[in-house]
Every structure is written in structure tokens, then in C-alpha cells.
Amino acid sequence: MSKIDIRHPHSQPMATARKSLEQVAAKLDDRFGMQSRWEGDTLHFSRSGVDGHIALEPESLHVTAQLGFLLSAMKGSIEQEIRRVLDEKFA
């Protein structure tokens, strides 16, 4: 198993950042069949082969995910896509 661990700064108010994360979650749900749910200020997401969360903090986001065996081979491209989406929503 591989682990993804990304910290991404943001300057949005918490309510705005939460809405932006909800948009990201909707894209993940549509594109990859991810299931997501909020628990406090943490967005949990999962599907077969992936289990992770995005912690919303006042000035940053902390993305962590465990990738199953098959997705471990694609870790680099998955991390790149996460960073691209975060840059797009939280630039």
C-alpha cells in the first residue's frame, strides 16, 4: 500500500473553503465513484482501493490517502491530479 500526504495552503475563509472542497468531492464522486462525508472539518472519502480524508484547517488543507495495491502503481499521477485540482480551487 502507498500513502499520499499533501499539505496545501489556502487563504479562503473557512466557509468558502468548505464549499470549494464540496465541489472537489462532487467531482471525485462523479469521476471516480468516490463516496464522501463530512465529520467536523474533515472530509472523508473512499472507494475500492482508496481511503482518505482532507482536513480543512484555517490556512491549509491536509490530504492523506491510503492507496490499495493496484492504485499504488499510479501514485505519482494521482498526487499530480490532486495538486492540480487544489491549485485550481485554492489558488
Rank of each mutant, 00 (worst) to 15 (best):
R31I: 00
H53R: 13
P9E: 05
E57N: 13
F69N: 08
E57P: 09
Q12S: 12
Q66N: 09
A15M: 12
S2H: 01
E57Y: 04
G33E: 06
A25G: 04
Q23G: 07
S77H: 10
A73L: 14
S72A: 14
S46I: 09
E79T: 12
Q23T: 13
R83T: 14
L67G: 06
P13F: 05
S77T: 15
S2Y: 02
Q80K: 15
L61M: 11
A55V: 14
L56A: 04
T42G: 02
E81V: 12
F45V: 08
A26T: 12
P58H: 09
A91G: 15
G68V: 09
P13W: 07
A25C: 04
G49C: 06
S48L: 13
K19S: 09
T16P: 01
G49K: 03
S48K: 11
D41I: 07
A55Q: 12
I4H: 01
I4M: 06
L56C: 06
G76P: 07
S11C: 09
Q23D: 10
L43V: 10
D51M: 09
V85S: 00
A25Y: 06
S48Y: 05
L71D: 02
V24C: 01
G52S: 05
P9Y: 03
S20D: 09
I78V: 15
E81F: 07
L56P: 02
T16G: 02
M34Y: 11
P58C: 10
F90A: 08
Q66W: 03
A91D: 08
D29A: 15
Q66F: 02
K75P: 08
R47H: 06
E88P: 05
I4N: 01
G40C: 04
L70F: 11
K75W: 11
L86F: 13
D30P: 00
A91R: 14
R31Q: 06
R84E: 12
L21M: 10
L71Q: 02
L71I: 12
D87G: 07
A55D: 15
K3C: 03
H8Y: 13
I54C: 09
S48H: 08
V50P: 00
P58T: 13
A17K: 09
F69Y: 07
I6R: 03
Q35D: 05
D41F: 04
W38L: 08
G33C: 11
D51I: 13
F45R: 01
S48F: 08
F90N: 06
A73S: 11
E22D: 15
H53I: 04
E79Q: 15
M34R: 03
P58G: 10
H53C: 06
S20P: 02
L70T: 13
R84L: 11
F45D: 01
A73T: 15
H10G: 04
T42E: 14
E79C: 04
D87V: 14
M1D: 03
V24A: 04
M34E: 06
E81R: 15
F32P: 00
V63M: 04
A17R: 05
M74S: 12
L43C: 07
W38S: 10
Q12V: 05
D30A: 12
L56T: 12
R37F: 10
D5Q: 08
K75R: 15
L70K: 03
D5N: 10
R37H: 13
R31E: 03
F32H: 00
H44R: 11
K19A: 07
R7Y: 06
H10R: 03
M1N: 07
A26Y: 03
V63D: 01
M1T: 14
S77G: 02
F69G: 05
A73Y: 09
Q12W: 06
E57M: 13
L21C: 09
H10C: 05
L86A: 02
